[in-house]
Every structure is written in structure tokens, then in C-alpha cells.
Design a protein around this nucleic acid. Structure first.
Lengths: 343, 343
DNA sequence: TTGAAAGCGCTAACAC
DNA sequence: GTGTTAGCGCTTTCAA
């Protein structure tokens, strides 16, 4: 177990020169004689010299590492985000430390401080579902550590954020349903206190209005169905059995869409011929489930990339340079899969 | 942007004592007077002192960080593995740096050296599909950096590994099919040069033999169908249309299982009543697809945990202690989902 | 063109 | 019980 990496000192000693000269030679400093430079680089090559990045971090007070906190890694959307982050970070010379809060507030607080203690240069975070207090963010943000939120952002902190254009996505997908010829489009909405739900509802309404379809409260499902597949299915069945049933449904997320789908199949309707389903998706369920559902794709990879870019920009800003926080709103993608598949 | 974290020195200065005393007080060294200790800890608390982990790393030549290289993050199996790694690493006080090779050999080599350069204390790796040369592992392993392989392991390196018990998994799932009353069980096998394929084939054979069913080469699908859904479907259809068709199929992986499933559905057979399907799964496809398929689950979380444990054990071994490499073979889980779902 | 020295933050051996 | 000193590996003035 020889753990001996060569250091600048070793090279200096072998060459009988000082370590400062070696350091200079290695980084192409102008004032080094060509001969010394050659001798040094040759030897460095021979011994496969690797600068000790920890020493560098200490010297520069910069770790070239960014920390990421997500609710859970085992989730298509979030792992996609990480992939995007890694993509940008890697090219910019940063390592990525990943930690998951497991949707726990306590764990998120611990993770936040752990990353800070580990001297990451900045933090990317998507909040846990439990989080309603923001002191931990406040603390490290005040301390000068750059933070960028993505997807589940925190309004209380004045920093850069990356989110998805819910309004536009909802508008687009509803318009798509209308263009496909569906005339009575229901909406399984999310909790009314979430701004996200409101945005999607507004997009839905805009599309209806634009095509002179009236907004009908009786085909809106509200309440907890968005988080409850069984309830979603049940309420959809009710709608389907009503006097004036819808011929399509825009579901707020994929859990809801799954419930809707089951109800529609049980009723014996063909998707998307008899009844069309569309929904926002963070690819938790529907992606793998049914090619006949049109989804508004949350662009995870892009989101990771953009968040990482914003963070690195901030990290690398000059000391006195003032960086204005930027809210990046990403357009969604409408994913229309082949509807030729038997359902 | 005040980036000023308090240091031991700051505390020492304010208290008019030396930094070594502060250091000692902070870590409860016996030879510090209670008063000094109190004064120091109070002040540390007040200023929210956080030891600089980079300085510590430099001092101890230990980063308390482990590197992970996986083919791709956006994959249910691998993200599950990371989750398991993170679980163990976190409790043991290690950070996890994740990098993905994207199934590219070149990128894997780069990642390997990048992690080594970043002074991680050890590396966990699952090889890229492309990798057939192992010099990069050899190099860093010789340098004394602990490595543990998982899932896609490298036989050429003498180090600890974590794999799945393919033989037993195949045996169990085949036996399960037999116990369900199926009598003519086909097998969609993997590439014959892979040891994994051989193990699974052997497990399959053992189960047949144990129940006095004869091994029939005519219902074995070999070749490239394991990596090709379309081909899998096609060859399955052939089998189903043959004179003496099978009544069940054990597929080597989930891509294959998916092809089989499509063929069976197209044929109009009910799963699992008319035709049963079972397969090894790393949850790439089938997991979300069909509750009627019995899967042999590759325990990703456990695998991550075990790999991390082995690695940390090695990292934390005393200098002169010799750690024998250990090959950990994890049992698979047989996942039998409710077959009550309409198919 | 090069070397000596200081320092990033921390710890530990050695003095007193 | 506490201070001094040296050093982890590197860079960067300052002086020669």
C-alpha cells in the first residue's frame, strides 16, 4: 500500500532546485529558463505528477466542488437533473457531491450544513416536501455561499432559480387536445394553495378561451386527487358516468394521469380515440406506462444544466461584482407518442 | 459577500491564547483547564465555528470523500445503487462524488483519474459496457487507492466486488414458474460469452432437472435477442407459433421480457393465466410496465450499501493491516406482483 | 532567472 | 495547562 504521490517538493529535491521554481515551471510562468522548464516537466511526466487538489483548495479557499441536495435520487426526474448538473459541472472543472433529503426537513437542514462545512463552492437544491422553514438556507446564503434553487424553489430566499413554465405547458397541452378535435376537456387540478396548480389551471383556461370553449367547473376535479391515484380514478369514473361526460382530460401530474387512465380503461374506452389523456409529467409513472398519453415533459436535464450554469457563474464572479439573481423559466416539451399502439 | 468563516486563529486571538490550545479545547483534550475549555467552546458557539474540512483533509491526507463511477445516473438500478451508497457513506461521515461514464470507455478512464486527482479516499465503480482494457484501474489500484466493483465487475483486478447471485435467482424464478403449474418453460438467454448468462442458464437448468422436466434446446432463444426488444418479440412469436409451443418464458433481462410480453399479448394470450413471463430485472423497463410479470429483482440499494461498506472498511484499515479482497454475492428477491390486474 | 519565506487552517510532538 | 514549532502541498510576494 504505497500511498506516495509525488509532490513538487520531491521534484525540486531531485533537481536540486527550489519548489517555487518547480511550481512556476509547471504552470508555464514566463520567467523560467527553458532548460529548467524542460527538466521539470520531464520529471513530472516521468513520475506522473498530479497536483494535490486539496492543497490547492486550501490555498485558493475554493474547493471546485458543488453540492446538490435533492429529495430523492431514485426518481427519474431528479436523476435526470443530476445528469444535467454533472454535465455542466464536469466541463467547468467542478466535482458534484450529491446528497438526498429523502423528503425530510431535518435531513435537509443537516445536509445543507454538511455541504457548507465541506466547503463546497455553491449549492443546488430542490426542497423537500416537508420544508416550510427556511432558516438553514438563510444562514448559509447570508454567509455568502451561492445557492440556486430548481423545480421546488424557495420564494423567501433572494437567489437564482430555475423553474418550468407551467402556464405555457398547460396551455400547449390543452391546445393540443383541442386541436385533436376534443371538445369537452376536463381538468384534474392540483392543490389550490400551490402556485404551480394555479399556473397550470390558468394555462388550461387560456387555451379553452382562445378556442371559444367555455370553462365548466363541473368537469374540474379539485382537492387531493392529484396525490392519490385511487381517488383520481374514482372521481374520473364519476365524471365519465355523469350526464354530460368529458371526452378528454388534462391531468396535473403523472400520478393523477395514471388514475385517470385506469378509470378510462375500466370504462372500456379506447385511448386516445374515445378519450384522450394528457398530463404534466416528471416521469414518475406514466412515462413507462402508456404510449397513448400525451405528456408535458419537465425538462430535467436542461434544468440541471441551467441551474449549474447559474451557480457556476455566481461562484466565479469577481469578488466585488454584483450578480443579480436570475429566475430562469424553462419551456416544457410536448411529448406526443405514437398512438398506434393498441390499448 | 462576506466569505469569512471563523478560524481557530480568530478565536485564539480574541481570547489571547494560542491556536493549539483552542484546537485542544475544541476536541476535548484532557490537558485543558475547564475555564479555557468553556471560554473557547462558548466563543466557538457564538461565532458558529466550523472546522475547515479542507485543511483537515490536507493535514490528515484524507478527504473523507468517496468517488462513484456508474454508466449512467438516469437508470433506476444505478440511481438505487447510489442511494444505497449514499446511505452508508453518510452515516460513516463520507461525502459521495458521483460521475457517469455514459457507457464510454474514454470517459471512464478520464473519470477514474479525475477522482484520483481529487484525492478521493476510494472508488466504487460499475464498468461501462465498452470497457475491455483495465489499465486505468490497474494504475490507481497499484497506487494504493482502494477500489470496489459492483454489478459490472472487472475480473482482472484483485479487489473486493459485489455481485448478484445469478445462478440462484434464475433457479428460484424458474422453480416459481414450475410451481405455478407451467410445464414447458422457454428461456430467452443472454450472450454466451457473458459469465452472467451462463450462471442464469445453469440456474434455469437446475430447476428443470429438480422437477424432472427435460431441457429442450428448441425452446431456448440464443443470440442477440437479449439486447433487442424487436428481435425478442419476433423470436418469441416464432416459438408461440411452433408445433409444440412453451407455456412460460424465463427472460434474461427486462428488455427481453418486454419483447416477450408484446409477442404474447399480440398472440392474444392472457398473462399470466395462459402464458407466464418471468425475468431478471434491473428495472429498466418492466418494473413500470406490467404487474403480471414476475421479476428477479437486482437489489440495487443493498448492493450500494454493501459496496460502500467494503470500501470504507478498506479505507479505514490500519496502514499495515492486510485486507483480503472479498467477493460479496447478494441474493436476489423474487418479486411476484398481484396477478389480478387485467392484462 | 531563481530562492527564501510566508501563509491557507489545522494538529501534534516537544518544550516549559 | 499552555505555547512554540513544524509541516500537510501549494502559490506568491519579495529579494537577490
Amino acid at each position: 500500500m504505497k500511498n506516495s504521490q509525488v509532490t513538487i517538493k520531491d521534484i525540486a529535491k531531485e533537481l536540486g532546485i527550489s519548489s517555487s521554481t518547480v511550481s512556476r515551471a509547471l504552470k508555464n510562468h514566463p520567467n523560467v529558463s527553458p532548460e529548467t522548464k524542460k527538466a521539470v516537466t520531464d520529471l513530472a511526466e516521468k513520475y506522473n505528477y498530479q497536483p494535490n487538489s486539496i492543497a490547492l483548495s486550501l490555498r485558493r479557499s475554493k474547493s471546485n466542488t458543488i453540492g446538490v441536495i435533492i429529495p430523492e435520487i431514485v426518481h427519474f426526474f431528479f436523476s435526470t437533473v443530476i445528469s444535467g448538473i454533472e454535465d455542466i459541472a464536469y466541463s467547468a472543472g467542478y466535482s458534484v457531491i450529491v446528497s438526498q433529503s429523502n423528503e425530510s426537513y431535518d435531513r435537509e437542514v443537516i445536509d445543507t450544513f454538511a455541504l457548507s462545512k465541506n466547503r463546497v463552492d455553491g449549492i443546488l437544491i430542490s426542497m423537500s416536501r416537508e420544508t416550510t422553514k427556511y432558516d438553514h438556507f438563510e444562514t448559509i446564503h447570508k454567509r455568502g455561499l451561492p445557492i440556486v434553487f430548481f423545480d421546488r424553489v424557495c420564494d423567501a430566499i433572494n437567489c437564482s432559480k430555475v423553474v418550468v413554465d407551467d402556464f405555457d405547458g398547460a396551455y400547449q397541452v390543452t391546445r393540443h387536445l383541442i386541436q385533436q378535435g376534443f371538445k369537452r376537456i376536463a381538468h384534474l387540478a392540483g392543490p389550490e394553495n400551490l402556485i404551480l396548480s394555479k399556473h397550470r389551471m390558468d394555462g388550461y383556461k387560456k387555451a379553452l378561451k382562445e378556442h371559444s370553449l367555455e370553462f365548466d367547473e363541473s368537469i374540474i376535479i379539485r382537492g387531493r386527487a392529484a396525490d392519490n391515484e385511487t381517488l383520481a380514478k374514482q372521481l374520473t369514473t364519476q365524471l365519465l358516468n355523469s350526464a354530460n361526460p368529458p371526452d378528454a382530460m388534462f391531468a396535473i401530474n403523472d400520478r393523477a394521469a395514471l388514475g385517470v387512465m385506469k378509470a378510462v380503461k375500466e370504462k372500456g374506452l379506447k385511448i386516445p380515440q374515445d378519450f384522450a389523456i394528457a398530463g404534466f409529467s416528471n416521469w414518475e409513472f406514466t412515462a413507462m406506462t402508456d404510449p397513448a398519453i400525451t405528456t408535458v415533459d419537465q425538462p430535467g436535464f436542461k434544468m440541471g444544466q441551467e441551474a449549474a450554469k447559474l451557480l457556476i457563474r455566481e461562484i466565479e464572479a469577481e469578488k466585488d461584482e454584483v450578480i443579480e439573481p436570475e429566475i430562469k423559466i424553462l419551456k416544457t416539451d410536448l411529448i406526443i407518442r405514437g398512438s398506434s399502439v393498441a390499448v
